[in-house]
Amino acid sequence: MSDKEIGFNENKVISSLKAHGVKNEELASRVSSMRDLQKSQYLRIQKSRNEFFQRNIIQKTSKTTTTAKSAVVVDISQTERQALIALYNSTTGSNWYKQSGWSNLTNNNIKVTDLYGVTIENGKVIKIQLYDNNLSGPLPSEIGSFPYLQELHLTSNNLTGTLPTQIGQLKNLEILYLTQNNLSGELPAEIGQLTNIKYISCGNNQFTGTLPVEISQLQNLEYFDIYNNSITGNIPPQIGLLSKLKGLDLSSNQLEGTIPTQILSLPNLEGLILSLNKLNGTLTGLNQLKKLVRLDLSSNEFTGTIPSELSQLTNLYELDLLGNHLTGSIPLELCSLAKLVDLNLGANELTGSIPLKLDN
């Protein structure tokens, strides 16, 4: 599985690690760890996505089986046709690696039924999957003109400019993949209008500004990442309202302040990745995240001791607190974490010996 496929940019990660003071001799292991995290999250999201669409396909097939013989090919609307043309032109479609069918769009006498990277059902565009296809240029405002779109997957291209505010018009969108492009500017507040969205992946871009509080309106959101950008300010406490959230990756940005207490109450959170920021404060309250599997707070400015209460996170597989200002000794209670495989406490100000069970 290539870095492009999972949306991992090694050069950007190395630059970010160096900017946060990671030593050269530590770079290889840190890059490897972050790549593994990204791959794990990608596979998890892909599995959930495939299961969702498989269920949809089975349901629709069972409903249409009796009418298959008399099925009539339905053309897409003129609005969607023009939106596809705008996407093709804006992103230099003539240079795409794969573009079968797209040249027919301007001919209204040819029904749109077979376009590379586009899934059409009953005359409606429901998926646009043009990842790693050499799209170059800005997304057009017409991107919001697909009322039935469920998935927009544009990872690993060279998209530039800002994310159009019209993105908020995609009321049926459930999956938004924009990882590894060159998108810039702030995330628009209109992203909060995607009330059916489950997955948002915006990592490895050039987004700036603060995270919009409107994210709190996405009550179906399960995974959100915007790692390796230039996001500033504090983590919005309103994220704590996302009760279905399972994965949150805000790593490699310029976030400041403490971890909002509201986030510590998320009942389904499995992955909390906040490494390579400027976050501070203590680690109090993390034991409330009972479903947590991955906790990465490395390369920040956290202080205080490592709470013994972390031993209550019985599902924890990875704990990375590297490169903070933590003091005191390593709690013996961490030895009870039976599922813990990856533990990194280096580059802190810890004292005392390493508990025997953790040193194996």
Rank of each mutant, 00 (worst) to 15 (best):
K98L: 11
Q38N: 12
E142M: 14
P236D: 11
R35N: 03
V13F: 02
R35K: 10
V13T: 15
Q180C: 14
Q193A: 05
N315R: 00
G209A: 13
S275C: 08
N229C: 13
L170A: 02
T208D: 08
N277M: 06
N157I: 07
N234L: 11
G123Q: 01
N182V: 12
C202I: 13
I226Q: 01
E318S: 11
T284F: 04
S243L: 06
P307S: 07
P307C: 04
S251A: 04
Y88I: 08
D249M: 01
D36A: 14
Y131A: 13
L218P: 00
Q254K: 07
S329N: 14
L43Q: 13
T79F: 10
T282H: 05
Q99P: 15
T79G: 04
A338P: 14
G7L: 03
N228W: 00
S40K: 12
I306Y: 03
G352R: 12
L194H: 01
I273N: 02
N182P: 02
G328N: 10
M1S: 12
Q46S: 08
L152Y: 03
A19G: 15
E5M: 00
E10Y: 05
K278D: 04
D225G: 08
T195P: 02
I120T: 03
L358I: 12
E186P: 04
S216E: 13
F53V: 10
E214K: 02
G247K: 03
I239S: 03
L115V: 13
Y148L: 07
S156R: 02
V293M: 03
L149D: 01
I191E: 04
W96C: 01
L292I: 00
E318P: 01
T91E: 10
L358S: 04
T119H: 10
I126Y: 10
E214L: 01
N95H: 15
Q193H: 15
P147Q: 10
I76V: 13
Q219Y: 11
E190K: 12
V73W: 06
I191M: 08
S77I: 09
T258R: 05
Y97K: 02
L283W: 06
E174W: 07
S103C: 14
A189D: 11
Y116K: 06
V72Y: 04
N277I: 04
F146H: 13
G93H: 03
L321I: 01
D75I: 08
K291M: 13
I231T: 10
L139S: 03
S184P: 05
S243M: 11
Q206N: 06
L283R: 11
A338Y: 00
A347T: 06
L245N: 04
P267Q: 05
N344S: 08
I143D: 07
